[in-house]
Design a protein around this nucleic acid. Structure first.
Lengths: 185, 185
DNA sequence: CTTTGTGCAAAGCGTTTGCACTATT
DNA sequence: AATAGTGCAAACGCTTTGCACAAAG
């Protein structure tokens, strides 16, 4: 799951690679500053402090594109050298990053899952209930449909979340393999 | 929030009224037995017992159509005469009713919310983040879109959940009223 | 009479919070 | 120096579970 990223001076771009298994096949969109820069701006604009912990967390999260929860983040932060960042600080910083528009959160199977929301196009998910994998897809049609439904109901949309649940291609293969005659000997 | 329901012999129908505020504007679909009957069938087919508590809970839930969580259900069950049904039993029975296909569950703002899934057409929701109201809508287009996306990804769909978040018409009115010049005196 | 369900209270699990200490401004 | 952030552990809110007793089959 490699990720290409380019930060060039002035106007900047993020370029995510196409993932072979299709999980992260969306192209990135243009952004005017790095996640770190944007987080610093956000903090300063609110009179909040730019701490070592906050910087370490933003940098770490935007080093690769994937979906993660608080525990996974804490575990992978723990592997970095230096002193550990506490669970409480991680939770507090994740909230701030959601506020800052850097991350998007959704609840899946009881736990909160986060993903990049900055420099990444709007999309929805296919969720495999066997392996828990999230596959992203984007659909303009869906957004149009959403807006039409909202309009009919006099509703002012701020966002949406579509999760299609089922079994991914990989898990279907595994299932078939398990059921094949060869295994019944 | 009145509900019309008719159980006539043989082939039966559930008829939900149109709700004035539009929360429950979907027409019902035909079902071959009452929720209670279906739950009993489900229980017997699995060698589970038909207890007073289980019957009381199904009946109570299907007396009116709305969205509820475990606590609300426990509170409204508590108002019935007779001995109280324990929290644990309510949770266990809700799980069984989801298994039985009578209820559908989703997680909203941390807590699990339930709604009828039997005798009620598939639909999705608009969720007002001001007043927490859920407005239902149905869209065949959405289902077609979902299936197309899944097909492209070799994904076998078992279901989906679309929640459009924003501000409902009522809350928009309230907001405008609060901001009107008259209130600024 | 056997076995499953119920009620209670305790445990679980992810997340949040109060507070004394530390770091940023 | 003043104030906001951190780390710790305890608290939280919702849900689940172990166990002794009650009820269904």
């Amino acid at each position: 799951m490699k990720l290409l990223r380019q930060w060039s001076g002035g106007l900047r771009f993020v370029i995510y690679s196409h993932h072979m298994a299709n999980e992260f096949a969306l192209e990135s969109i243009e952004v005017s500053s790095s996640p770190r820069e944007r987080f610093v701006e956000y903090l300063q604009s609110r009179g909040k402090r730019v701490t070592q912990q906050r910087l370490q967390i933003v940098d770490h999260i935007f080093e690769r594109h994937d979906h993660f929860d608080a525990d996974e983040l804490i575990a992978s932060l723990g592997q970095l050298d230096g002193q550990k960042i506490s669970r409480a600080t991680v939770y507090r910083t994740l909230d701030e990053m959601v506020d800052a528009g850097l991350l998007k959160a959704m609840t899946l199977t009881g736990r909160r899952v986060y993903e990049h929301d900055y420099g990444y196009p709007q999309h929805d998910h296919l969720h495999c209930k066997k392996c828990d994998k999230l596959i992203e897809f984007a659909s303009d049609e869906l957004v149009a449909l959403r807006d039409a439904v909202a309009r009919e109901n006099g509703f002012r949309v701020t966002g949406h979340r579509l999760i299609i649940t089922g079994i991914c291609a990989d898990c279907q293969k595994k299932q078939n393999r398990a059921k094949s005659p060869l295994d019944l000997i």
